[in-house]
């Protein structure tokens, strides 16, 4: 299995899928001539030409809406948002059109479209460029939402997204673009709604996704030195969400800590915690706890920015509290 960065896993999958299906096209701001803000699409304009690699004006509503129309007519647009923060002007298109057209047309037409780009905090990008929008998009039936943590899952989930028939919110993390790991070759597909046991353990279950998965694994590593064995579950996709794997794990460990980078209120972690509480009440030896970002707009200064997102120690402390 070759090693590959998270960034290269995205690009490799885009290339493979574009080679496989001429209806796959890319669209977004500065993805062509500029080569992509995060250089995901470097060289692709030269390789595929301007009809398949479409540079757009700064018109998220316009080009995401256009992508919906393309998808309804049989193309498979993969649209890059420079960051998910900039998807908000297009939220009406995503929520009111993409998510619902299949339903209100009585199943006559679907929207096989992928929107991808970085989600979550970077380094000192401040309040308008650091948001995590997974629970926002996860709220709407008709959308699928993926939040991969590894290069292998990037490849498998992006492939499933592009080959699927439904609109997909594909949440990457800019903090992971340089992250390197093994990636299976060939036609590797990860189905939506299938979580992964990233580390097996018996004492507590830590549930995470995207960048927080790595913090959870680091916390598990440090706890293991004290003889505490955490099971770490990587959700991979948030809609559909694999509650079965989560519930089965919690029934084994009797303790659960749910981790998310986003704000605490109405977040993904609260949703998972509620499901555990409803289904595993008698199995639990401690309250389900959440580790989340601070309830503040993201500050600029590094000292307080670091305090606004969860870290390895926060997760380890939550596990220790659950065991105390």
């Amino acid at each position: 299995m070759p090693e590959m960065t998270y960034r290269d896993a995205i690009k490799t999958t885009l290339v493979e899928e574009m080679d496989r299906n001429p209806n796959v096209i890319l669209m977004g701001e500065d993805i062509g001539v500029y080569q992509g803000t995060f250089r995901i699409t470097e060289g692709l304009l030269d390789k595929y030409g301007p009809r398949r690699v479409v540079d757009t004006p700064i018109s998220e509503l316009g080009f995401i809406g256009a992508g919906i129309g393309m998808a309804m007519l049989g193309l498979r647009p993969v649209i890059e948002v420079m960051t998910w923060n900039f998807s908000l002007p297009a939220a009406d298109q995503i929520i009111q059109n993409a998510a619902k057209i299949r339903y209100f047309s009585g199943g006559q037409v679907g929207v096989p479209m992928v929107i991808r780009g970085p989600n979550g905090a970077g380094v000192q990008l401040s309040a308008q460029h650091s948001q995590s929008l997974e629970s926002f998009y996860g709220h709407f039936p008709g959308l699928k939402v993926a939040a991969p943590s590894t290069p292998a899952d990037v490849k498998g989930l992006l492939r499933a997204a592009i080959r699927g028939e439904d609109p997909v919110i594909f949440l990457e993390h800019a903090g992971l673009y340089g992250h390197k790991d093994d990636v299976p070759e060939n036609d590797y597909v990860v189905p939506f709604g299938k979580a992964r046991i990233a580390r097996a353990g018996r004492d507590a279950t830590v549930i995470a996704y995207s960048r927080m998965l790595h913090f959870a694994l680091a916390a598990a590593e440090s706890l293991a030195r004290d003889g505490i064995e955490c099971e770490v579950v990587d959700l991979r996709s948030l809609r559909p969400i694999d509650y079965e794997t989560v519930i089965a794990s919690v029934r084994r460990t009797h303790r659960a800590v749910v981790v998310q980078e986003q704000w605490r209120l109405f977040g993904a972690a609260g949703e998972v915690a509620a499901e555990i509480a409803e289904r595993c009440f008698d199995d639990l030896d401690a309250p389900v706890t959440r580790v989340t970002g601070a309830d503040v707009p993201m500050p600029y200064a590094r000292s307080i920015e670091l305090m606004a997102i969860p870290h390895e120690q926060d997760i380890a402390e939550a596990v220790r509290r659950a065991l105390s």
């Binding site: 129309g69 393309m70 007519l73 009406d92």
Partner: peptide, 24 residues
Amino acid sequence: YGGYGVIGGHIPLAVGAAYALRYQ
């Protein structure tokens, strides 16, 4: 292809659909 309830919200869809017709 519809039939939309949000004023103006279908205009970008039509533009993308037109692009698809030529692309094909």
